[in-house]
Amino acid sequence: MKHPLPAQPRHIGVLRLSALGDVCNLVPTVRALQRQWPEARITWIIGKGEHSLLAGLSGVEFVVYDKATRLAGMRALWRELADTRFDVLLHMQQALRASVLSLGLKAGVRVGYDKARAKDAQHWFTHRQLAPHPRAHVLDSFLDFARLLGVEDLSLAWDLPVPEAAHDEALALTGDAPYLLMSPCANPRLRNFRNWSAEGYAAVIQHAWQQHGLPTLLTGGGSTQEREKGERIHALCDPGAVIDAIGGTSLKGLLALIARARAVIAPDSGPVHMANAMGTPVVGLYATTNPDRAAPYCWQAFVVNRYPDAVRTYLHKSLEEIPWGQRVRHPDAMSLIHAEDVIERLEALLDRAAATHPERELPDDET
């Protein structure tokens, strides 16, 4: 017998801890729930870094879990929510750690992914599963939770809060001058292989500088890998073409910078989805991950997509022969992307922006 879903939930729990791009893609689902049930209380259990990005999201109570605290952090969170019972818990994190965390939460019904999409046996930890949705984009998979609950209006909205201090942080780096924003590195975890070459990035920066007079702001975390990548890119470019802010911004400051940029260029990583959420044109660079599943949702037409080539070259298979969402974990996969590919997509974005947003025209009438 299926557990019944609440027709009018009073308290909705959302369990999604990470990552930056994923939590950006989840916000439209939260907004859809708020439109359907404006009086409902929404509590989102979220990771520490992800909370710093979304803090202040209207109508949402956040409970922060720091995964570095491991079991001690879980126990502290369980104590914090000991007197809380959700009408429905949306278990939206496909990881065993999150499923274990969910065991200490009280809920009338727990909703998770269907068996085909559930990783780490997540379906064992839930009462109700989503209807199958083969080959779904991550954002659409999140919206499937709202669909299951009977939400009718699934239109996309974000409205991410950016405090004044973050705008001041951005202005201190760029002033009022137009710029591109480039985040060269994805998360530096083991076998990620999502980063493009310094030479490729530099060629795109040089094009934007020489053809349009647009400098490029480099952003990223403060890891050694990211700083070294930024230094190599900077060394290959003309003086004035690069503003190096790697390791020098908060996440809210990065949101403000993205909001003001002419366009964003980055591999499959948080910044492409942050740009999507802020309505900023974005060129996503994809070879190791499938953009049909994980591209910046509103800018899929401007992705540089070498994933099919990577599957053929390094997995020796066709797209039809591999599981949906399989990654190509090969260090040379991103080399299939050429500077000309990125420049062509960038030019298409700049042309589109000039046509639809005249206030974003390039300097010196170089549109």
Rank of each mutant, 00 (worst) to 15 (best):
residue 228 E to M: 12
residue 112 G to P: 11
residue 69 T to H: 13
residue 6 P to G: 12
residue 359 E to Q: 11
residue 130 L to Y: 01
residue 356 T to V: 15
residue 278 M to A: 01
residue 119 K to S: 12
residue 125 F to T: 02
residue 48 K to F: 06
residue 363 P to Y: 01
residue 189 R to E: 12
residue 75 R to E: 11
residue 257 L to W: 00
residue 308 P to L: 05
residue 91 H to Q: 15
residue 181 L to H: 02
residue 237 C to M: 05
residue 305 N to Y: 07
residue 366 E to S: 15
residue 83 D to P: 10
residue 353 A to V: 14
residue 311 V to P: 08
residue 65 Y to F: 15
residue 44 W to Y: 05
residue 259 A to E: 00
residue 294 A to G: 09
residue 236 L to F: 05
residue 176 D to L: 11
residue 10 R to L: 11
residue 157 A to M: 04
residue 163 P to G: 12
residue 248 G to E: 11
residue 144 D to N: 15
residue 136 A to M: 04
residue 14 V to D: 07
residue 177 A to Y: 01
residue 13 G to Q: 02
residue 185 C to I: 12
residue 308 P to N: 08
residue 160 L to H: 02
residue 166 A to Y: 01
residue 244 D to H: 06
residue 298 C to T: 09
residue 125 F to M: 04
residue 146 A to Y: 04
residue 346 L to K: 08
residue 230 G to C: 09
residue 266 A to R: 02
residue 19 A to V: 05
residue 209 W to V: 06
residue 352 R to P: 03
residue 108 G to E: 14
residue 312 R to F: 11
residue 147 R to A: 10
residue 201 Y to D: 07
residue 237 C to K: 04
residue 221 G to H: 03
residue 202 A to I: 07
residue 268 D to K: 04
residue 169 E to I: 08
residue 167 H to Y: 14
residue 26 L to Y: 03
residue 302 F to D: 15
residue 305 N to M: 07
residue 329 R to P: 05
residue 365 D to R: 14
residue 203 A to S: 14
residue 27 V to S: 01
residue 297 Y to W: 13
residue 303 V to W: 00
residue 303 V to Y: 01
residue 122 Q to T: 08
residue 276 N to H: 08
residue 251 L to R: 03
residue 96 L to A: 15
residue 366 E to P: 01
residue 223 S to K: 09
residue 155 S to N: 12
residue 285 L to Y: 02
residue 209 W to T: 03
residue 268 D to G: 09
residue 263 A to W: 00
residue 47 G to P: 10
residue 192 N to P: 06
residue 154 L to R: 11
residue 213 G to L: 03
residue 351 D to R: 15
residue 65 Y to S: 03
residue 161 P to D: 08
residue 336 L to Y: 00
residue 169 E to G: 06
residue 314 Y to K: 01
residue 146 A to Q: 12
residue 286 Y to Q: 10
residue 11 H to A: 07
residue 96 L to Y: 06
residue 285 L to T: 01
residue 232 R to A: 15
residue 99 S to D: 13
residue 69 T to R: 14
residue 322 I to L: 12
residue 277 A to Q: 01
residue 120 D to F: 08
residue 220 G to F: 04
residue 86 F to I: 09
residue 28 P to S: 08
residue 347 E to H: 13
residue 128 R to L: 10
residue 256 A to W: 02
residue 228 E to H: 11
residue 82 A to L: 10
residue 298 C to R: 13
residue 160 L to K: 03
residue 69 T to Q: 14
residue 231 E to P: 07
residue 74 M to N: 11
residue 351 D to C: 06
residue 38 P to S: 02
residue 356 T to Q: 14
residue 232 R to V: 07
residue 358 P to Q: 12
residue 237 C to V: 10
residue 148 L to N: 13
residue 199 E to R: 06
residue 325 G to A: 08
residue 348 A to P: 03
